[in-house]
């Protein structure tokens, strides 16, 4: 059983570690948000599962708080990613130079033109 605990803790830390490397390596806000919203969810889930099993085996506690924490991270990570990226776009953060397409910018410009007329 110890092996299972160690494995889930190590995978959890590995995913969080690689998502923070992603924050450093990726070029702009949006690609960095990819790394944060995805990498960290599985990382936190792994750590929570590891500590849940540990508490259950060592102390016989079924900790509902850990499970709840996992569920809420899963629900809130995409929402916060959406809000941060939209706020960034609306406040004028540019896409990376090598980005190939920007439909949202075109749509916003189109709406602005319609308003001016």
């Amino acid at each position: 059983m110890d092996i299972v605990i160690i494995l889930s803790l190590v995978t959890g830390t590995f995913f969080i570690f690689s998502s923070s490397i992603g924050i450093l390596r990726f070029p702009d806000v949006y690609t960095r948000l990819h790394a944060i919203t995805k990498g960290s969810t599985l990382g936190i889930a792994g750590i929570m599962i590891g500590s849940f099993i540990f508490l259950y085996i060592e102390h016989g506690i079924i900790s509902g708080k850990l499970l709840l924490g996992m569920v809420f991270v899963l629900i809130t990570a995409p929402v916060s990613g959406h809000m941060i990226s939209r706020a960034a776009y609306r406040s004028g953060v540019k896409l990376w130079d090598e980005s190939v397409k920007d439909d949202y910018g075109n749509a916003l410009e189109h709406a602005k033109k319609l308003k001016d007329h």
């Binding site: 702009d28 990819h34 990498g39």
Partner: peptide, 22 residues
């Protein structure tokens, strides 16, 4: 998606073409 993003993070060369589509 987690496995995907980890693969991208550890790729030595960053050959991605990001963008926004509708």
């Amino acid at each position: 998606s987690n496995i995907d993003i980890v693969k991208l993070v550890y790729k030595p060369k960053l050959d991605i073409e990001p963008g926004i589509f509708a």
